[in-house]
Write a protein that binds this DNA or RNA. Sequence first.
DNA 1: GTCAAATAAATCAATATTGCTTCATTAGAA
DNA 2: TTCTAATGAAGCAATATTGATTTATTTGAC
Lengths: 217, 217
Amino acid sequence: MTFAGSRDMLMVGDDFEPKKFQATSLKRHPHKEQGTMTAHPENREMLASLALALVDQPRASLQELARAIGVSKATLYRFCPTRDRLIERLMAYGVQVISEAIAIAELDRDSPIEALKRLIENSLKHRELILFMSNYWEKTTAPDLCSAADWDTALDGFFLRGQQQGVFRIDIAAPALTEIWSSLVIGLLEAERRGRVARIGLTALMETAFLNGALAR
Amino acid sequence: MTFAGSRDMLMVGDDFEPKKFQATSLKRHPHKEQGTMTAHPENREMLASLALALVDQPRASLQELARAIGVSKATLYRFCPTRDRLIERLMAYGVQVISEAIAIAELDRDSPIEALKRLIENSLKHRELILFMSNYWEKTTAPDLCSAADWDTALDGFFLRGQQQGVFRIDIAAPALTEIWSSLVIGLLEAERRGRVARIGLTALMETAFLNGALAR
DNA sequence: GTCAAATAAATCAATATTGCTTCATTAGAA
DNA sequence: TTCTAATGAAGCAATATTGATTTATTTGAC
């Protein structure tokens, strides 16, 4: 079930774990945000924590957000002066990361099944961003990003090819397969976050659930 | 894909459709909210619209919320004076409605497959509330509701019985089946909301996706 | 230890939101 | 029509949030 209450297993920067982020050389010039395309490694965990915090508490004030990731309000401010900017930044970063994950998966190479496995593996490395994007996508005015993120197209095409090869069933339209797929990825990631499913078997679980379904054979 | 942008198909009270809600006999006493257990029919669509609006724009001010459902700030205030109260009310209403839906499904009766079909049918009647609850459950302090809403338990038990009868596969734990199931329901409801899948075949789609998976047979 | 960079804490004006009220207008039933 | 309940619009004080700054403290490299 999706609504359930235990606490975050995946949480990176919660109240109990006030990690110290080393916002890389932001210096004294708050508005000189470095290009999102080259997020410094030290900032990545901050971005990841922020993504999770924003998913958990969409209505949190910046003060609360800062607390949630174990950082002072001022540091968060220097990292990103306004909430809008922060969300833009996270979104841009997420788009970049996920697009890359899809690209690396080489969905065209060998069997669709193998390609799908690679896609899972690559996706699971960015749980926080996936959850963030699944929650904030529609609420974001991302003019330039929208075009960049035609994952729907990419995945629809992938599933269509799989259907043409006789691998995927054809009584479900390719876009619907895409939706089923992403529902499972996102839903099970959230389930993992709530401790309802183990992190260990997650890849296999997604695979089986998506490919074979729940019926005994 | 879950992140995608077209507009709400299922939207009840959007900007373009400023339905006039007849908040039933709230009279001049804003704080005399009638018991949530007996939500008047006229209020139900307001609750449904509010649920959707809150899902779409969690950070909307009450003013914006009112606009979103085509109602004045004052009317929303009379319907529910504070945001917390509103969310409590929606949550209580949702818990009641969903619990009822599960009860009506009679998960114990005849074959698990048939029971599952009934569960889908009953659930789809409350799309808005399901989406609302899936978004707000963890963020809500619902002391009394938590106990009332042991759907996890109910569904876990259902799937376990199905496994014992040899219907559901046993290499996936029952709670994981519950999570897969709810992931599909919620994810595909959102996909429908975004216009990615048609409303018509939704029941069959969920059923096939969950039971049989994506592989061709 | 010293020094510089990064951060936390506190402050503050500007702005937004909230909770609540008043009043004019509208919609609906008698 | 007439009367009344319900609504919409506007306004208002209390409060919260934001965006920005200043100062003190901590951290880490050297």
